[in-house]
Design a protein around this nucleic acid. Structure first.
Lengths: 143, 143
DNA sequence: ATAACAGTCACGTCGCGTAAAGGTCG
DNA sequence: TCGACCTTTACGCGACGTGACTGTTA
């Protein structure tokens, strides 16, 4: 939408660390329309488009699916200049929330793992032949 | 493998927070064999099996795919009692590494996002009609 | 004119979700 | 015997990957 479209698809892919297929796929799904098409049908993108792909990728990384992302970004929500900025900040805020939730979950699992590790470490100093079947650490041994 | 198999599939699903389908699917793929089958064909699981599902889930959460996980867990790697404990600790260590990488990536994206937020905040105090096309924050506004 | 891009089908994959139709267990 | 559980079979889906073949561009 913003600035003059100068990037070909492979350059966008490079900057956003995605495949060409991903960019075309996002277009198919209505999440990303190229700013311009050459007479021959080549897609041309602006910096705004690159940033949009990055935004989509960050959202995907927090577990959100494309339909939800599309709903967020297809803003019949904002039309004034200032409203656009406000809406963008709202979206980025939601993104931050989601990322935070992912972090919390990762930390929870990390703690779970640490507890298991300290349990299993005891097995190293244990005479396995004397260890009863129901010894809790044994239930964490692989196999 | 360990302890007496007392859990039905739905109890395993509950404890590991997955669906019945997921558990059966892991079996199909050779990641999780029930400890016992009743004469009628019902799957019965032990606490070890529950822990194995949880382990698989934590790995999945760090972006690893089922084939890789299977390779890790199908341990022709360890057969002695002590070797089992050592192998388990290795696997848990790898899991911790992967989780750490995910965290680092999330933090990187979080920082990227914060920079964009501070850019876009400037647009709130900007007279949009006087703002040039190439103003960097504009390239981050949605639409 | 030629190489390095680009384009469109269209089928494949991975990790399950989701009926449908029937068998098992206390 | 009855209801709550379980079973298999099998098709569907989201988010792309991966050719195969053709067209565009500097």
């Amino acid at each position: 939408v913003n600035q003059t479209p100068t990037y070909q698809i492979s350059e966008v892919a490079r900057q956003a660390s995605v495949s060409l297929r991903t960019i075309r796929f996002y277009q198919e799904k209505g999440l990303l329309t190229p700013s311009l098409l050459t007479s021959g049908g080549m897609r041309l993108y602006s910096q705004s488009d690159v940033n949009r792909v990055k935004l989509i990728r960050r959202f995907r990384n927090t577990g959100m699916n494309l339909e939800q992302i599309k709903a967020l970004l297809s803003s019949e929500n904002s039309n004034g200049g200032r409203a656009k900025a406000e809406h963008t900040l709202e979206v980025l805020g939601l993104e931050a929330e989601n990322a935070h939730k992912r972090m919390v979950e990762l930390r929870r699992q990390s703690q779970e793992r640490e507890e298991i590790i300290s349990l299993v470490k005891k097995c190293l100093d244990c005479d396995m032949s004397a260890c009863p079947e129901e010894c809790p650490p044994r239930a964490h041994l692989i196999q």
